[in-house]
Write a protein that binds this DNA or RNA. Structure first.
Lengths: 209, 209, 209, 209
DNA sequence: TATGAATGAGTATTCATTCAT
DNA sequence: AATGAATGAATACTCATTCAT
C-alpha cells in the first residue's frame, strides 16, 4: 500500500508521460521541448528530471507500455482458436497499423531505437526485443496461414508484410491527419492492401517459388 | 572555357553539395548544422551562403536533381515498348526503392514538403508536382498491367503499391546501412515483395472485387 | 515577505534592467547586444531571456515606467489649480525635456514605436496612446494659456511647442553629456526657449491670426 | 583633361555615392549594407572599397557636399542686400528644414559626427567645422534681426532657433513621409513655427530680458 | 518532493572587409 | 580598375540540463 506522497508522485509521473505522449505524437520528439512538456503536465520542468533521467529516457519509458500492449494484443489474436489463420493474420496487420497511426510522430522510435546506442542501458534493448518478438509473431501468423515451417522464405514473407504495414503508417503519420478521419477515408484501402498481400502470398506459394 | 576563379567556385560549390548530401542523408536534415557542413566541405560556414540562399535551399538544390532524374527514369521505363506491362511495373518499383535508399535520411522531404508551406514558392511546388506525377505514373503502370481504366479502384491499387515501396525505403533508410550491402542482403526480398504484390493485384482482379 | 530565491531573482532582474538602461541610453537600442547587457549585468546572456521575452520587450519594460510617470507628472501639473496657465505650460515643457534627456538614446522609441508594427500587440500600442495623450495635454495646456478652444490653430501650436521640446532633447541626447552637467550648462537656455515660444504664441494671437 | 579611364572611374564613384545617398536617406546608415549599395550602384561590392576607405568614410564623403551646399545657400541668403533681416532669417530657417528633411535618415550624422572619433582624420573635423560655421550664420542672422552684437544672449538665441529647426526635422525624418507630401501637409506649420519664434525673440528683447 | 535560477553549447544568418586574380 | 571568393566576428535566440534551496 502506498502513502500519499507516493501516490502524488505517481500522479505527476503519469501527467508528464501523458503530456509528453500527446506532444511527441503531435509534433515529433525533436520539436517538443522539456519546458513545453512541463507546462502541459502542469509541473516545473525540473520535476521531469526527477522522474526521468533525460528527454530520451522519457521517450523510451513512454513508448514502452504502448509497445507492450501492442505485443499483448497481437499475441492474443494469434492465440484465438476460433479464428481462421487468414483472419488472424489480417487482424494482426490492422492492429499494427492502428497502433502505429495512434503513436503518430512517435512511431518511428520503433525503428530508430537501434543498436547504435550500445551503451545506453535497458530501454533500447527492450524495444529491440519487442521488435523482435513482433517479427516473430508476424512470422508465426504467416506460417500458420501458409502452412509452412520457419524458414528463410517465411522470414522474407514476414519482412514483406511488415514493409506494407510500415509503409502505410509512415505515409500518413507525419501529416497529422486525425486517426478517425484517416480511418474513414482510407481504412478500406488499408484492408485491401492486406488482402492483396495475402492473396499474393498464397499465389506465390501455389506457383512454387 | 572557364577561368581559374570559376573553376574554384564550382569546386567549392560541389564540395558543399557533396558534404551536405552525405550529412543530410546520414543524419537527416535537421540534425545537421551549417557549420558542420562547412567543416566537412572544408570551407567557412559563411561560404555556404555564397552559394545557397538558405539551409533549406541547399536541401532543395540537393534533392531536386535526384527527383528529376527519378521521374525521367520512370517515365522512360513506362514508355519502353519492348517490355511487358508486368516488367515495366516491377522496374518502376525497384527504381523507386533504389532512389529512396540512395537519398537516405533525405528521402522524407519527398513526403514532408507538402502544401502546408504555401508561401515558400517554387521548390516545394516542384516537389509536389513530382510527387503527383509519380503517383500518376504508378497508376498508369498498374492500369496497363491490369488492363483497367482510371478509377477509384486503380487509385487504391496505386496507393497500395506505394505503401510497400515507401515501407521498404523507410524501414532501412534511418539505419544507415550502405546501399550496396543492403542490396546484396535484401535485394531479392524487395523484388519478391513487388512480385507478391503484383500477384495479389492480379488475383484480386480475377476473383472480382 | 520574500524568500531568498525571490530576492535574488528580483536583484538579477534589476541588474539586467539597470545594465540595459545604461547601455541603451548610452549607445542606443540597436548598438547594444544582449550579450553586452548580460556582461554588464553580471549574468549569462540566457538569464536575460528568463526575465524578458525579447530584446524588444526588455526595451519596452524599461521605458514604459518612465513614460507612465511622465504622463502622470504632466497630468498633475495641468490640474494644479494654484498655478497660472503660463507656469503650467512651462512646467510641462521642462518636465518633458528632462524626461527625454534622462532617457538618453532610448528616447527615440517615443517616436519610432509607431503604427507600422501592427502585429506587435500591447506595448507599442501603449506607447502610441501615451504619445497621443501627451499631445492632448500639450494642446490643452496651450489652449488654456491662450484662452482658445480646440481648433486647427491650437493643433498647430501644440505641434510647434513639441518641435522645440523634441529638438532640445534630440540635440543633446546622442552626445551623452551627463544630465546634471547639461542642466547646469544649458538649463537656463531651455527655459528661455520655452519663454520665447510662449511670448511668440501670445504675440501671434494678439496680432490676429 | 581626363582620359577615358579616369572618366569612367569618376562615373562609378558618382553612382556609388548616389546609390548610397538614396539608401542611407531612405533606411538609415545602419540598415544599409555595402552589398545593397553595390547592387543599386551597378558595381561589385569590392569596387566600393576602391573609392572609399570604408562604409563610414563613404557616409562622410556623401554628406559633405550636401553640407557645403547648405552652407553656401545660407551664406548667400545672409548676404542678399535686398531682403530684410527678418525675411533672411526666415529663409535661412526654412532652407535648413528642407535640407534636413531631404537628407532623411542621413540627417543625424550632422549631429553624431562629433568629437568622439578623435582619431579618425579629416571628414569628422570638416563636418564639425561646417556645423560651427552654420551656427555662426544663424547667430549673425539673428543678430542682424534683433540688432544686437555677438554675446552670450545671441548664442542662446541661435541655439533656440536651432532647437526648433532641428526638432522639426527629427520629428518627421524617421517616418519616411515623402518630402513633397510633408511640405503640403505641414509646410505652413513650419513657417508658423519660425514666425512665432521670431516674434518671441522680438518680444523678449523688447521687454528687456 | 519540488522548483526557480542559471548556464554553456548550439542554431541559422548577416556583415564589413580582405585577398587573389 | 575591377571582381568573385572567402572569412571572422557578430547577431538574437533556444534548449537540455544542473544547482541551490
Amino acid at each position: 500500500m502506498k502513502n500519499k506522497k507516493e501516490l502524488r508522485a505517481e500522479e505527476t509521473r503519469k501527467k508528464i508521460l501523458s503530456a509528453a505522449g500527446d506532444l511527441f505524437s503531435e509534433k515529433g520528439y525533436n520539436a517538443v521541448s522539456i519546458r513545453e512538456i512541463a507546462k502541459e503536465a502542469g509541473c516545473s520542468h525540473t520535476a521531469i528530471y526527477l522522474y526521468f533521467h533525460d528527454k530520451e529516457t522519457l521517450l523510451y519509458e513512454l513508448s514502452m507500455p504502448h509497445l507492450m500492449q501492442l505485443r499483448k494484443r497481437l499475441e492474443l489474436t494469434l492465440k484465438k482458436e476460433d479464428l481462421t489463420p487468414e483472419i488472424k493474420l489480417k487482424e494482426i496487420g490492422m492492429n499494427f497499423i492502428l497502433f502505429g497511426l495512434e503513436l503518430g510522430n512517435m512511431y518511428d522510435i520503433f525503428l530508430k531505437a537501434n543498436a547504435s546506442r550500445v551503451d545506453e542501458a535497458a530501454p533500447v534493448e527492450e524495444i529491440n526485443e519487442l521488435r523482435i518478438s513482433l517479427f516473430r509473431l508476424l512470422r508465426e501468423a504467416i506460417g500458420e496461414y501458409l502452412s509452412i515451417e520457419s524458414s528463410d522464405q517465411l522470414l522474407a514473407y514476414a519482412r514483406i508484410y511488415f514493409y506494407t504495414l510500415h509503409g502505410i503508417i509512415t505515409t500518413y503519420t507525419p501529416l497529422g491527419e486525425p486517426l478517425e478521419e484517416l480511418r474513414n477515408r482510407l481504412g478500406q484501402t488499408f484492408e485491401e492492401a492486406i488482402d492483396i498481400l495475402l492473396l499474393g502470398f498464397k499465389e506465390k506459394r501455389g506457383t512454387g517459388k
